[in-house]
Design a protein around this nucleic acid. Structure first.
Lengths: 195, 195
DNA sequence: TTTGGTTGTTACCATTTGGTTACATACTTT
DNA sequence: AAAGTATGTAACCAAATGGTAACAACCAAA
């Protein structure tokens, strides 16, 4: 596009990555695709980012998934409400971000340093929360960890699937009605557990 | 391979599909790959199956996922044990079948008639079980459906992820220890709910 | 034995992929 | 003004993809 502005073209390239990711997922981010969507010749992609891997690493770094999301701090008087809030936040995060859904999908088929790093952060964040809830509730780490796993994994699965499939177990996962029911189920679970 | 036996070469081709699926997933099933793994020239693939889509449809039909798995019939005296057994069976199914794990992964990125059919069957089976449990337990369909969704989606997610990632939420998902903990969590849930 | 259909192989095709070379244009610094 | 560097483009390359055409070998039925 001949703008002769490195910063701008780098921005254009990264924006193109974002567009492709949100529309088709990380699997579709190739040199040719990025070049054509950004309108920048692919030579510059290699020149400025080295490789697609590095370009994606930069993209992930910029849109720092997980780190930018504020999880509700322990500001509730009881653990039950805190727990409910945590998973509400998790659901919200995935609902709002098509890119995050695509990232979780990508994780199923790919292994690279960037993904490893994201996994580590996820583990750290999870551990922190699990520790807090465990201490406050008196439940063992395994107990709290098991429940957290159950819920977050489920939510992730359903959100990824919802992009291709409208119903799972009679639950409408492509509109709010299904998610309301699921939230209600989670609340019900905690109501039963914390008593 | 010049065996001049259509049945045999068809079998060879389908077996090659199976190998590729189990090792690399449905995404990797291409004409060239199938041809080279099976040792059959790709012309015959088109001649006998029409297209890769149809070949995969045949493969899915043959290895009829979901239909061949026996779910524990209501032979327990209480709903709690029955519920626990159901999800144990579900976990077992995914544990034993690499192809099923790959199928669930494939479902995230693909839509075609064959997949739609599998989804329908899954819905039917799920509905049947949910109905049974709902009647026996007195819980509403939404309640039972919600819990079923939560658990099966979670298990599916963790099994798919386990092929690329060893730990999720401090849970070791690539060996039995993690799965034992998850089973224990599920049991705990039901113990709390059914009382 | 000839005819017709089945099975298999080789070679080819267009398209797309990731990746590079060579060159031209501009800007900056000396 | 000259030299050197940063930016951009067009053309090209090898490899792999899905897909087909042409031909050879074989078998069975007429």
């Amino acid at each position: 596009m001949a703008s002769r502005d490195r910063n701008l073209t780098e921005k254009r390239i990264l924006e193109a990555v974002g567009k492709i990711v949100e529309a088709e997922g990380f699997e579709a981010v190739g040199v040719n695709a990025v070049a054509s969507v950004s309108g920048v010749s692919k030579v510059l992609i290699y020149r400025y980012f080295g490789s697609i891997e590095q370009l994606l690493a930069k993209y992930l770094e910029d849109n720092d998934f997980w780190l930018n999301t504020e999880f509700p701090v322990m500001q509730y008087d009881n653990v039950k409400d805190f727990s409910k809030a945590i998973f509400r936040a998790y659901i919200d995060m995935l609902r709002k971000s098509p890119a995050l859904r695509k990232l979780y999908r990508w994780e199923f088929t790919t292994n690279n340093p960037a993904i490893e790093k994201l996994r580590e952060r996820r583990e750290q964040t999870a551990l922190k929360i699990i520790n807090a809830v465990s201490q406050q509730s008196g439940f063992s780490l395994d107990r709290v960890g098991g429940i957290s796993t159950l819920i977050t994994a489920s939510v992730s699965y359903l959100y990824i699937l919802s992009e291709n499939c409208g119903v799972y177990c009679s639950l409408e996962i492509n509109n709010d009605s299904g998610w309301d029911k699921l939230l209600e189920t989670i609340d019900f679970m905690f109501d039963n557990i914390f008593d």
